[in-house]
Simulated scan of single mutants.
Amino acid sequence: MSIIIKFFVAPDRDAAAAVAEGGPERVFESLTFGNFDVGEALVEWESIFTGQRFEELVAADEPEVVADPGDGEGPVVFAASRLLQNALASADQSRVVEVGRLWAAERAADGEAFDQEIAAWILAGLAGLARAIGEGEEGLYCWMA
C-alpha cells in the first residue's frame, strides 16, 4: 500500500477542492506523510482530542469530503473539522505526545503497527499548521492519493 497524504491550509473549501486533481504543493505549502488511512485518522484524532465517540463523528459525516473527482478511485480532499483544528492549535507538546500515544495504541488494537514517535511528529506538524491559521477563516485540509 502506498498512499500520499498532504495536509495544507487553504482560504476556503473551493480553493481546497481546486487542488484535488494535482495536489496542493504548487498552490499551498503542505506537509507530506504517507501510508495511513487519513480519513479514519482525522476521526480518531478528533475523538481523542475532544472525547467524542468515534461512531458519533462518523455518523456526523466526519471527515467532510471536499472533493472526490475519482469517486473513490483517485485523489480526495478532506476538511479537518473546526473542532479538530482548534484542538490541534491549542495543544501543547505534552498533549500532542499523549494524543500520538493514544492514536498509536488504537492503531495497534486494530492490528496496525504505528510508532508513537512518528504519530507525535505527524500531530506536531499539524498543530503547527493549525496554529498558523489562528482565528482566521482559513481551514486545515488534507489531500490524499
Rank of each mutant, 00 (worst) to 15 (best):
D14W: 06
A16H: 04
G111M: 02
Q52I: 13
G111Y: 05
P75T: 09
V38L: 12
P24C: 05
E137V: 09
G70F: 04
A145F: 10
E55P: 08
E138Y: 12
G22T: 13
D92H: 12
F114P: 09
D71C: 12
E29R: 11
E21A: 09
P63N: 04
E62R: 13
I4M: 15
P75C: 07
G34D: 14
A89F: 03
A124Y: 07
R13L: 13
Q85M: 07
E62I: 07
I118P: 03
I5C: 06
L84V: 01
V43E: 00
D12T: 07
L42G: 03
E73P: 05
D92Q: 09
G125K: 08
A10M: 06
A108Y: 01
V99E: 03
P63L: 00
F36E: 06
M1E: 10
E73Y: 14
V58E: 08
I133W: 04
A41D: 04
R53K: 15
V66R: 08
G128L: 08
L123M: 02
W103M: 01
Q85E: 12
E137R: 14
A89L: 05
A91Y: 00
R26A: 15
F28D: 05
L140K: 01
D14Q: 12
V38M: 12
V77K: 05
A127C: 05
Q85D: 07
A67F: 01
V96Q: 01
Y141P: 06
R107A: 08
E106I: 07
E106C: 11
E98A: 06
R131V: 03
A127W: 06
V19R: 01
G23C: 04
